[in-house]
Amino acid sequence: MMLIPCPWCGDRIDAEFTCGGEAHIVRPDPATASDAEWADYLFMRENPKGLHHERWFHAHGCRRWFHMTRDTVSHRIVAVYAITESAPEATG
C-alpha cells in the first residue's frame, strides 16, 4: 500500500491511481528511426532496482497525470512533480 501525494488532491490511497510506467521516454522520429531505435523506444525499459521516475494518473480523483520518483524496493516516494517537468536531478 502506498499513500500517494497527488499534486492536486493531496494524500490519497494508491488504489485510486494507475501507474503509466517509466517516464521521460523520448519518441524518436518514425521517419528516420532505425528498427533498433524504434524497438528501444517501444519495448526496452530501465526497470531499475531503486529509484524510478514514472508517470501516474489519478484515475479516481482529479484524473490528471503527474510524475513521481519512487524507490522500487521500499516503495518510498521521493519526489512528485508536474507532467511537463523533467526528472529532478538530486533524485536521479
Partner: peptide
C-alpha cells in the same frame, strides 16, 4: 500489481 516493484509485497486492493 500495477507498478514496478522489487519489494515482494503488494497492495491489499
Amino acid at each position: 500489481d500495477g507498478y514496478n516493484s522489487y519489494g515482494q509485497k503488494g497492495g491489499i486492493n
